[in-house]
């Protein structure tokens, strides 16, 4: 599956600055449909900032400026007539820390469809999302319990289910396993393979083994610059750039 498919999402010469500090420097990165793309790099290299620009989550940070274009289905999500709310309906996100709402398991999943006016067949929607996130069998008998009673790994899968309930086309994941134990991490990685049958996934990770295991394509960033991008296998076994080689072999970072 490491052949490129159609480009669904693309950063075009994207530069992002916090105040006058440049965090992402002229990055062009195509994201292929139904593939898993991972973005790796040392802390502070701008990988999370780049990820958050895909669904305009940087809008909420003061003094962030973005130049360049992010296109989704060939539409610029930063166009003056683009609606960030509509963008986020198609591009879901899972965060680093499992962060369910302090509500019931059912209400966590049902909230997004509810506020978007999709109230019909809610039970089916919730079940489908929980099944997709491989959580249904564990929680089907306690949907009305508080989500805070779940374990960390279950909470993170609930957060994935919550994002999937809107049937997005893209799922952005910002170090989704960094707060989880190895067993929970393995479950989420298995889940990613199932999800890419229908979804396009971009995952930011600190864990190079994880990038090597799960992703079809890998982008390596350093100091805001995209150093190298290609099929994961090539990037890890035969990188073109010296810095990439040093990073993936663990010589720095």
């Amino acid at each position: 599956m490491t052949q490129p498919s159609e480009v669904l999402l693309q950063a075009n010469a994207v530069s992002i600055a916090y105040g006058d500090q440049l965090a992402v420097n002229a990055v062009t990165l195509p994201i292929y449909q139904q593939r898993i793309t991972s973005i790796i790099g040392p802390s502070g290299c701008g990988k999370s900032t780049l990820l958050r620009s895909f669904n305009r989550m940087n809008d909420f940070i003061d003094q962030v400026t973005l130049t360049g274009k992010v296109t989704f289905n060939d539409q610029n999500v930063y166009a003056s007539d683009a609606d960030p709310v509509a963008v986020r309906l198609n591009i879901g996100m899972v965060f680093q820390k499992p962060n369910p709402f302090p509500k019931t398991i059912y209400d966590n999943v049902a909230w997004a469809p509810k506020i978007n006016g999709r109230r019909d067949n809610m039970d089916d929607r919730v079940e489908q999302a929980l099944r997709q996130a491989a959580l249904w069998d564990e929680v089907k008998d306690r949907l009305q319990e508080s989500a805070l009673n779940l374990s960390g790994g279950q909470q993170q899968r609930l957060c994935i289910a919550r994002a999937l309930a809107m049937n997005p086309l893209v799922l952005l994941m910002d170090e989704p396993c960094s707060a989880l134990d190895p067993v929970s991490t393995a479950r989420i990685e298995d889940l990613l393979f199932e999800l890419k049958e229908t979804l396009t996934i971009v995952i930011v990770t600190h864990n190079m083994q994880q990038a090597a295991r799960v992703s079809d394509f890998t982008a390596f960033m350093e100091n805001g610059v995209l150093i190298e991008y290609g099929p994961t296998e090539t990037l890890f076994t035969n990188p073109e750039n010296k810095r990439t080689e040093e990073y993936v072999t663990g010589r720095f970072g």
Binding site: F60, G92, I115, A163, M166
Partner: peptide
Amino acid sequence: PSSLRQVAFALGATRWQVTRDHVLPQ
């Protein structure tokens, strides 16, 4: 926590929906 707002926004909510369903109850 601003992370709560971010989660809700990432699910395609408007500011009013985030405020009504999450910020005000908290």
